[in-house]
């Protein structure tokens, strides 16, 4: 009897597993899955003030979080239908590949090996923040440049490009150093504050946001040496063109809105103006009154309007979380629009 029962159990496990096995396939876009589920699963860091950080009211906020909201607004028309999944750096690609999350908006550097099909094989959306790697040291340590860190311990997050850049910089100078690698940015900060390392390294934006949480931020400084360029971008698992196209044009939509002066406050006025004035063809196309740009992407034709209503344009998002009046002020620098001297620009909505 027991033998037969265990056999039945085994068979049902087998059936369950084969059902799981077939789930991985299917050629439909994840966009349909997200709509059906009624919720976007967005991977974030959750630990970087200004980018994604838990607020007092228990909600996530930051530039990366606003992008999740923008994608949800574009796909489902509602920026609140997002489930945030906090992920560590080593976890993030696995979570994306296995389909646990739909997309990743988590301070991820766009580079060749992550993009290539022979590497991580993911697909990046346009860069939303141009960063560079730096080093944070104590002001009273007497360390002023990379060379002063010869033979010293440096706290670094594992499984990141940061680790590789650090090595490239020291190897090219021929200097020895000791990397103390942790899995998580919080541990990097703890190791540095406890005095295990003479310096900690990460993207300069992350250093600034980590320092903003220190007890005495004024005792620490970011060295002027910049070890790398770190273009940070949202991404999706490779091979889903509809989803990656949608993400790409949502980001371009945010940038174009800033270029055209469309903000969260005036988007409805602009919509009204475009409706009444058939000569404003560019604006009408952008807002989805004319043409079928949104439909081509598999989104609603006025997805840009939903996005701007939800989050405002790129400049508004930036200022909300990283502007001079925010908790983590980072000068816009490279992240200004191209016409203002930065590198942020978007191809035409045509």
């Amino acid at each position: 009897m027991t033998k037969r029962r265990s056999l039945v159990a085994l068979l049902s496990i087998g059936l369950a597993m084969s059902a799981c096995a077939s789930l991985g396939e299917g050629s439909a876009s994840r966009i349909d899955l997200i709509k059906k589920r009624g919720e976007l699963r967005c991977g974030v860091s959750g630990k970087i003030p200004g980018f994604s950080f838990l607020q007092r009211d228990g909600r996530y906020a930051g530039l990366d979080v606003d992008l999740c909201k923008a994608f949800a607004a574009a796909i489902m028309g509602d920026p609140n239908k997002v489930q945030y999944r906090p992920l560590t750096a080593p976890e993030r690609f696995t979570a994306l590949k296995t389909g646990e999350i739909d997309l990743l908006s988590r301070n991820t550097t766009f580079n060749l090996s992550r993009d290539a099909s022979g590497g991580n094989g993911v697909t990046f959306a346009p860069v939303v923040f141009h960063d560079g790697q730096g080093l944070l040291v104590r002001k009273n340590s007497g360390i002023r440049s990379l060379a002063d860190l010869k033979g010293q311990s440096i706290c670094v997050g594992s499984g990141t490009t940061t680790e590789q850049n650090l090595n490239d910089a020291f190897q090219s100078l021929g200097l020895p150093y000791k990397p103390i690698k942790y899995q998580d940015l919080n541990q990097v900060v703890a190791g540095y504050l406890q005095g295990r390392c003479q310096a900690m390294t990460s993207d300069r934006s992350q250093l600034a946001s980590a320092r903003s949480g220190f007890e005495r931020p004024e005792e620490h400084e970011i060295l002027t040496d910049v070890l790398s360029k770190e273009p940070l971008a949202p991404l999706s698992s490779g091979g889903d063109q509809r989803l990656s196209d949608a993400m790409r044009w949502v980001v371009y939509g945010l940038i174009t809105a800033e270029e055209m002066g469309i903000t969260q406050a005036n988007v409805d006025d602009k919509l009204q103006e475009a409706r009444e004035n058939p000569d404003l063809t560019k604006l009408r196309r952008f807002l989805g009154i004319e043409g079928d740009l949104g439909t081509k992407l598999g989104l609603s034709n006025d997805f840009v309007v939903n996005v701007i209503r939800a989050t405002g344009n790129y400049g508004e998002i930036y200022n909300r979380h990283l502007g001079p009046d925010s908790a983590v002020p980072i000068p816009r620098g490279l992240n200004q629009l191209h016409r203002d001297g930065g590198v942020i620009t978007a191809p035409p909505f045509q």
Binding site: P90, F93, S113, G159
Partner: peptide, 13 residues
């Protein structure tokens, strides 16, 4: 820890 680093650097999970 080292496997973790090599997996993220090479993408060969």
């Amino acid at each position: 820890a080292v496997s973790d680093t090599t997996i993220t650097q090479t993408g060969r999970a």
